[in-house]
Each structure stands twice: as C-alpha cells, then as structure tokens.
Amino acid sequence: MSNIKKTSTKRQSEIVSAESTTAINEKLLGKNPSKPMKKIEIKNVHCWYGDFHVLRDIEMAVDPNTVTALIGPSGCGKTTFLRIFNRMNDLIEGFRLEGEVMIDKKDIFSRELRVNELRKKVGMVFQKPNPFPKSIFENVAYGLRVNGITNKKIIAETVEHSLKQSALWGEVKDKLHKNALGLSGGQQQRLCIARAIAIEPSIILMDEPTSALDPISNSKIEELIYDLKQKYTILIVTHNMQQAARVSDRTAFFYLGDLVEFDETKTIFTNPKNEKTQNYITGRFG
C-alpha cells in the first residue's frame, strides 16, 4: 500500500468517525445532545458497607478535562470513592450512600436517573485487564450493541476509531476477529480502554489500571491517559506516586475513609499542608 493511499484512507476514516460519533451521541443522549456531562461535584458524602463506615463526609469538585489522581494506603476508601460515580458499589449487598453526588448539576442517585444510562456516560477501566472471552472486535462493539446500535457500518467505524484512540489499532488491525484473551496484558488493558471509550463517555474512571502491567505497557497507558484528557474527565486510583505525579492535574489523598487533602498535584507532592499526606508521599507508611 502506498503512503499516499494510507493517508487518504486515514483521513476518510476520521471524517466518517466524526459523523458516527454524532450518530452515537444522538442515540445515547437523544436528539438534542446537551453539553456532555463532565463536571463533578460531591458534598457531604458518607458510605457504608453494612456497619462499616468506609467514607466520611467527602466534599470535592472536579473540573472537566482534567486528570484527578486518588491516592492513599490500601483500605482508605479510594476505590469505593471511584465506584460512586458509575454506581458500581450498588452491586455490593449492604452498600449504602448518603450525601449529594452531582454530575453536571444532576444528582446521579436521583430516582429519575437510570443507572445504565449513567454508566454509558461514565466509563470504567479495571485494575486487572478484563476483556470478554470474545473477539477483539466484539469486545469493543459490545458497549454499542447493548445500547441498541445495530448499524454494522457505524459499529465497524467506531471500533476502528476507538482502537486508534487507545493506540492499539496498529497492533490488532489484522486480527480483529481473534480472541481477545490471546493479547498481552498491556494490550488487553488498552483494549479495555478502547471498549470504554467506544460508547463516548464523558468521564472515565480508572482503578489502578497499570498495577498488573509491565513498565513498558505502563508508560504506554500513561501516555494514553494524557491524550484522553483532551476529550474526557479522568479519575484514576493509583498506588504509584510517580504515576500520580506524572499523569494528574490534581491529587486527592485519602486516609481511613477521610479525604485528607485535595489540591494541585504539584502542591501535594512538593508542599503538602497535612502531615499525613507528607508522610504518605514520602513513603513513611502505606
């Protein structure tokens, strides 16, 4: 294939995918896609598992198109906090939440809001890569299919576009119909990111997305997070201080269910106000 042809097909596909994106948005958000939900505000949030008080009186505001890192020792509640925003905690028996969680001024726990509508707009990437035991193509297409998109052309284009966005297209374009479990761990995780962005969410939650990966895959994902920030608001739980420092704009430090400190990442890592934060980032505990 000549170079020229390559460029032209690439451009073509970009044009088409821009169109298909609108189509998906119409399907997902209705005929009048209002401003995509991006801004997060939470107030007085408490969470319990049965009698166990996991999160206490959390208050936080997250700006659109930023990366927020959630750090803290194991069991501090940061993963529970992350899973508030797509209501994945609801799947756990005995979970209870009080307080106000607003995404673009809408209460995500209100009765009118359907939880699967919310989850379409708040994507998630898990700690361990968890592709479905299906083909690479079907993995990415799944989110579209469950949301009622049947047009084959749109699906194919979105799959390609998402795989390109997650920097995986080059590696898998010749084996789209091979089983996803045959990919390496790093590729699987990028596939999971592609799967999450295929349905055009506005917020992406990442739960230690690189903890199960090798250093090279790790840096590829970090680069990817940096690129994705242009389009999405990202919340990322991490145990890796360097990662938090590299990828995030702001950092929140959790300790035993309390949000101890939330500030510009630079400030947290160079001049934290709280002693506990200081101790944690310098590795004195955790």
């Binding site: 509508e117 919310l118 898990f126 361990k128 968890n130 479905f132 469950v146 799967r195 349905i199």
Partner: peptide, 17 residues
C-alpha cells in the same frame, strides 16, 4: 469471574444483557 459482570455493567449493559 465477576469481573466479566462488572465490565459489562460498566458499559451500561442491563442485567439481562
């Protein structure tokens, strides 16, 4: 594994889907 279930829910799939 329950991670399959979570992954599917996280993409907005309903319980039956």
């Amino acid at each position: 594994p329950s991670t399959m279930r979570e992954a599917s829910y996280a993409l907005g799939a309903s319980k039956w889907q």
